[in-house]
Amino acid sequence: MSKIHVTTTINNDPAEFLCEAEDTLLDVLRDTLRLSGAKEGCGSGDCGACSVTLDGRLVCACLVLAAEVEGAKIDTIEGMSDGENLHILQKKFLEHAALQCGICTPGILVASKALLKKNPDPTESEVRLWLAGNLCRCTGYDKIINAVMDAAAEMRGLE
């Protein structure tokens, strides 16, 4: 069976890869393209550690086939900071100690960024609901929520 050739845009750079029909976007990101910032916590959509955006929509990379992203635009944690300049969310996560082990962090950052794009002024419960698909077992979520709320406020201030 010959492989499928896929042309796509990842973090604003053109990207191409070969995959098999059963490969997920997460498999390709991690194993083929070696963008291992998206993590596999479950492989079945339950943990959100693999969160990326696909044409601007937040998705689980483990629930998207690699073949499906032909012509699409994908953004991952690797594209979040602008070179040396961390995104405000990244800075706030450090400032608020919103991570312990950090395995959930890439997914939560990507998901939070998608939230703030859609809703720049969320309530705390809106943040909690939006992030319900991103499991964190270390923090009890408190500091994560604080970091997102603080980042939202700062981002609003910049506009």
């Binding site: 959100g48 689980c60 998207v64 991103n134």
Partner: peptide, 9 residues
């Protein structure tokens, strides 16, 4: 249905 991520699909 599902999470925000699942909603996207």
């Amino acid at each position: 249905i599902g999470s925000t991520q699942v909603q996207g699909r």
